[in-house]
């Protein structure tokens, strides 16, 4: 167990360093980062001034050294647009984004797990048809379209929820549903398939042969095994949700990182984009690590691995 966790931890650190290096070089890939970052109609003097201000005129290895030193202390330079330290801008937005992503995840799990289990235990039934239908819809309906439909129906027509902004629980409902709908479809399909598969396992037949009751077999024997498959995809989907929230946060004017990406890209605010990229990548790496830890908690075969 310790060795397993240590190796995963080292893996994460290496991955993170890789991300930092990659971000550094991607900006410089075109040769001249100053020209890339400045507006197209900027004068050569302005560009030169900017180049010096940003330190792009120093030798590459000096730039790299400065960049890495900054990165380790969380310093990714100042946002050109907001004129504030880029990383602290990102950090300010974390609670809103996390709140939305967690709410969306919660919604997706709470609906998909029971649905997938019902579908998987009664294949061919009406419930199963419903389960498969929702799985399909969840995966085919684009979330920005869904967001607009939700706004039109629940906010404009029924006036149940605000149309935009982050103001208490009620404002969270629609964006969370819009963002959580795709993972909901994905989880439903996965849980259903996984229940179907596990029900055919020999150890489930053993459980029945012991005279255990359906309910007990479901919770004690089937669901734990389904959880392993579920954990593997929840982390990945959570990472995607951060990306997917670019649209959703923009549509609902949700003051999170997703909306800031939009603004930063449009303003060519490279230090900010960089900080967001590093933060998001770091978050995904962290999710991976958490997923691996969850595996170990659920699965003794990993826990007792030599």
């Amino acid at each position: 167990m310790q060795r397993y966790l240590l190796s995963r931890l080292i893996q994460s650190v290496v991955l993170m360093i890789g991300v930092l290096v990659l971000v550094f070089f991607i900006v410089r890939l075109t040769g001249d980062p100053a020209r890339l970052m400045m507006p197209r109609d900027a004068s050569p003097e302005n560009i030169q001034a900017f180049r010096e201000a940003m330190g792009f005129d120093a030798p590459l290895h000096v730039q790299f050294f400065n960049y890495m030193r900054g990165a380790l202390t969380g310093d990714f330079g100042r946002s050109l647009h907001y004129r504030a330290p880029a990383m602290s801008l990102v950090v300010e937005r974390i609670p809103a984004t996390l709140e939305l992503a967690l709410a969306a995840l919660f919604f997706a799990l709470v609906v998909s797990i029971p649905l997938g289990i019902i579908g998987g235990t009664r294949p061919g039934s009406i419930w199963d048809t419903l389960c498969r239908g929702i799985g399909l819809i969840g995966q085919t309906v684009p979330n920005f379209w869904l967001a607009l439909m939700l706004i039109v129906f629940f906010s404009v027509e029924l006036r149940w929820f605000p149309t935009f902004g982050r103001d208490g629980l009620r404002s969270l409902v629609l964006p969370a549903i819009a963002l959580g709908f795709f993972p909901l479809g994905k989880f439903t399909r996965l849980v259903r398939a996984s229940v179907l598969e596990i029900r055919n396992e020999d150890y489930i037949r053993t459980a029945y042969s012991k005279g255990l009751l359906e309910q007990h077999i479901l919770t004690r024997h089937i669901f734990r095994n389904v959880a392993i498959t579920l954990v593997s995809i929840v982390g990945v989907q959570f990472g995607y949700m951060l990306g997917g929230s670019i649209y959703i946060e923009s549509i609902f004017a949700w003051p999170g990182i997703g909306r800031m990406v939009n603004e930063a890209v449009q303003a060519r605010d490279f230090p900010l984009v960089q900080a967001i990229a590093v933060f998001t990548a770091g978050f995904v790496v962290l999710l991976n690590l958490l997923t691996d830890i969850a595996y170990a908690v659920i699965d003794p075969r990993i826990r007792y691995e030599n």
Binding site: D202, H221, N225
Partner: peptide
């Protein structure tokens, strides 16, 4: 049953 490798639940 025949296969003792698969007849016991690996997680319990």
């Amino acid at each position: 049953f025949q296969d003792p490798m698969s007849s016991l639940n690996p997680l319990i």
